[in-house]
């Protein structure tokens, strides 16, 4: 360092850079944060609530990621078909809920979805495409019915729906991206292990309903 300085490679300004950065970060820490003493309402609350809602419940997160994982395991065309079909069927379930049409055993259906989808990943099941789509679609109705209707008071239903659908779709994307490791030998095992975790979590959710 000293030799570099002597050689003229490091100027005085460059030598002070870490200290300046440290002082700037210290100053940032001292910035005051405004207190918001009011309930958030309006458009932005709707879209933020919609984006947050699917990732706030582990049951929904695991099921959505497992749809992506299973799709990646099945390969084309299932990997494309499932994320196209799922949001529409899920929204149909949400619409049923919003219209006041009740479905029996919603929570059980959600827990069973994690168990079954996880089991499909563990066993690397390859049913015909229409059976895979029907199975995923069946469970999508339960997820839509349970989660699509929980709009916070004072928010816009449309913006909540946009956030909810986008977040769910991104969870599928995460599942598909994780499933890409399936192409490797070790990754294949990792995907199956992830399926086992999802299935075990589903059993926990199911047990929690009855206990």
């Amino acid at each position: 360092m000293l030799e570099q300085k002597r050689a003229g490679n490091i100027g005085p300004a460059q030598g002070k850079a870490p200290r300046t950065l440290f002082l700037a970060m210290l100053a940032l820490l001292l910035l005051p944060a405004t207190v918001f003493a009011h309930q958030e309402t309006g458009s932005i609350t709707g879209i933020v609530s919609g984006l947050k809602h699917p990732v706030s419940g582990m049951d929904h997160v695991l099921a959505m990621i497992s749809v992506g994982l299973w799709g990646a395991q099945l390969g084309a065309p299932a990997v494309w078909l499932l994320p196209v079909a799922f949001p529409m069927v899920m929204a149909f379930g949400g619409m049923l809920g919003l219209m006041g049409i009740s479905l029996p055993g919603i929570e059980i259906g959600i827990a069973v979805s994690a168990i079954v989808l996880g089991a499909m990943i563990v066993t690397e099941s390859r049913p015909p495409l229409w059976i895979a789509a029907a199975l995923v679609g069946f469970f999508a109705i339960f997820h839509g019915h349970a989660h699509g209707t929980e709009l916070p008071a004072g928010s816009s239903g449309l913006l909540y729906s946009i956030g909810f659908v986008a977040a769910t779709g991104m969870l599928h994307g995460v599942g598909i991206a994780m499933g890409l490791v399936h192409a490797f030998r070790g990754g294949r095992l990792a995907v199956r292990a992830a399926g086992a975790v999802v299935s075990a979590a589903g059993m926990f959710f199911l047990a929690r309903i009855f206990v």
């Binding site: 949001p87 899920m90 949400g94 619409m95 919003l98 699509g148 239903g157 729906s161 946009i162 779709g169």
Partner: peptide, 17 residues
Amino acid sequence: GSWIAAIGLLMLGWLVR
């Protein structure tokens, strides 16, 4: 497109409600 359709379906439900 499926996202737009899904938003439309949910919005119809909100309108019913």
